[in-house]
Design a protein around this nucleic acid. Structure first.
Lengths: 216, 216
DNA sequence: CCGCAAACTAGAACAGATTCTAAAAGCTGT
DNA sequence: ACAGCTTTTAGAATCTGTTCTAGTTTGCGG
């Protein structure tokens, strides 16, 4: 019935599928390569469609057609629409992370660095509102464990507590960064609903960050 | 197309529908009364079904059948499944608010009173996990403006800043209470996903509230 | 009591996600 | 090149939210 992450042995499931069954490292398995391509085509098609009319436009049949695969194949790679959305979000997050790496926030206090990152993410997402809307909502709905919140929390810890990773952080630090991420997500939602302006979000994020990350 | 709050003049749309077209005060309009009943039957049926198998079990056909109305009628009262969900949530919030009124949080600090309320709400919701899951997720997805966040924010302001209402509060106070509500919602979601225990939530809420409501 | 307009009903119809099936295509080892 | 396997494919079929249609019921003003 529902999205049951069953024991089917489909192709790679994560962004980088280097955990094949055979340890052969050499690049020879044509199968796997073409499957990676297929996967990429699918995700691209999905993202393209979603950045137009949002989730609605991202119909499974359409995605399949546009990616040049059969509907059944699409479902083999992504057992549900949500899984596909999660994959698309993953790509977006990759983008954000590499952007952060390229141009790390330079502000003085932990909280202002965090605000910097969050607002940068906000801008990035709002560049494609339809896509952002589709992605955020779907993610929140997702039954599956979404690395979204965790990745954002990790990112926040990294920039605010200078290089701290999720593992090294104290429980309280994780809690605080996680809370800030929660606030951000909700604000983003409100913005997508048209109930917040960019400036309002900035103010609220600043207020929250100032308190939550005061002495991180 | 999507849920368009069109200008159809259906029955009462809110919990209390006393804004009829004709000013006749006398209790004679049999229509309206029976409509209230119908509405109540529908919401009850919906809640009952949802507390079993979640949103999935709360199918429009089933709700209609169980409430003893035609599918078309159901859609007349609630233009979309989401509207129905919102109504069910409304009832739950009413319950929480009256519970707070009956037994107000007695803790000493604003933040501990807020924590008290939030954890009470958490317990209440977790009593029917399927229902809670269905409701929270649907609400977050909702295109419609859901009074959920705002009501919770108002409630938090009321208990923490002793009787302060949403209107009287300063912008910063509203922001802070709103942020705490955001954190709570996200934690609830994580709990429903099975990624948080009750104690973890409590700890995180306490941590966040301690900072956010420190000097409210 | 009559006729109107709104509300209700039963059920068909439509839409998009998901599942299922039978057949074709692609690999792999021999 | 062949048998045995998995992957893809095309397409039908299923499921549930939503819409539509035609006919019936209900309450009201006259």
């Amino acid at each position: 019935m529902r999205t049951t992450h069953v024991p089917v042995p489909p192709p790679a499931s994560d962004t980088e599928g280097t955990m094949e069954s055979h340890p052969a490292p050499g690049g020879h398995s044509v199968r796997t390569r073409s499957q990676h391509q297929r996967r990429k085509r699918i995700v691209q098609a999905a993202a393209a469609l979603a950045s137009r009319g949002g989730v609605e436009a991202m119909q499974m049949r359409t995605v399949a057609e546009r990616a040049g695969v059969a509907l059944g194949t699409l479902y083999r790679y992504f057992p549900s629409k949500m899984d596909l959305v999660v994959a698309v979000v993953g790509e977006e997050l990759d983008l954000l992370e590499s952007s952060i790496e390229r141009r790390p926030p330079g502000a003085a206090t932990p909280s202002s660095r965090a605000v910097d990152v969050l607002m940068r993410a906000t801008r990035g997402l709002m560049r494609e509102p339809e896509l952002a809307d589709a992605l955020i909502r779907s993610l929140i709905m997702a039954e599956v464990q979404t690395p979204f919140g965790d990745r954002m929390t990790g990112l926040l810890l990294r920039v605010s507590a200078d290089g701290l990773s999720l593992e090294e952080a104290s429980e309280e630090q994780t809690d605080l960064a996680g809370s800030l991420a929660s606030v951000w997500v909700q604000e983003l939602l409100e913005m997508l609903r048209g109930r917040r302006t960019y400036d309002q979000i900035q103010r609220r994020i600043e207020t929250a960050a100032g308190r939550l990350l005061a002495d991180i």
